[in-house]
Amino acid sequence: MKNFRTMVYPYIIWAFIIIVVPMLMIIMYAFTKQGNEVMNIRFTLENFSAFFEDAVFINVLKRSLVIAVLTTVICILLGYPTAYLMAKMKPKSQMLMVFLITLPTWINMLVRTYAWRGILEKNGLINNFLALFGIEPIKMLETTFAVVLGMVYNFIPFMILQIYTSLSKMDQSYIEAADDLGANKIQTFFKVVFPLSLPGVISGITLVFLPAVSSFFIPKLLGGGQFVLIGNVIETQFLTTGNWGFGSAISLIMSIIIILAMYLARYIDKKISAKGGDM
């Protein structure tokens, strides 16, 4: 039996070198001065102060957060009803719906995002359609609208599938009990179904918010070169400017924000579940 355990060691060594070491390098570069010899590393917070003292970067961070929150909210508003209606379908239709929603996620994200350019363009599909009704072309490409649309489009399947899983696993006897006890449909939904499906919503939020904050090709493809989010700043620091220290500091700030957001989501989930227990 002990023979088999040794089969893990090669992977642990490999994973430590290629997963853990790069992560440690990000932390090291974020806190040290550039151009130092390895032997005399100097600790500094300059990279962080450069970020927080510059209004440009703060605005980029704010814009990234606003867009990520907006994307997440829209994904919930559109995804919840979809998941809810799916869960009420016949088992065979449910399987088909899961397939139809999963299929696009297997197709390359860039491919799917690029397709929206032709649809949103000045002489694109939507504007051609509007022209039939005599409506002047609207500028959609290279706007916040296009970026949020692209993000919702790419990330909403995760939200739908998470909520759907928690709804379809739900014990139907709770709903029957609420019904027997005289609750109407709206009451049953808000007091029973919704609180019970919250874990699904929370994990959906995690799966949407995280890629939405860090995405850099969606803003570039649909927002144009002027539309800069935090991911684009990191990209520039590493691939154009070559300032690893500053780039590492920004990605560390971004990671911390994401971790905080995750904890907040879990905290809210716990609070609401606890409140549900009291009733």
Binding site: Y11, I12, P22
Partner: peptide, 30 residues
Amino acid sequence: LRGIVAQINDLPVMNPDIVTAIGLLMFFSS
């Protein structure tokens, strides 16, 4: 042992791709 591997594996799965990417970029370059 299982816990250690699970923790390490979580890093690239949970981290945004761009963070994993810049880590690897610096790693390979150095």
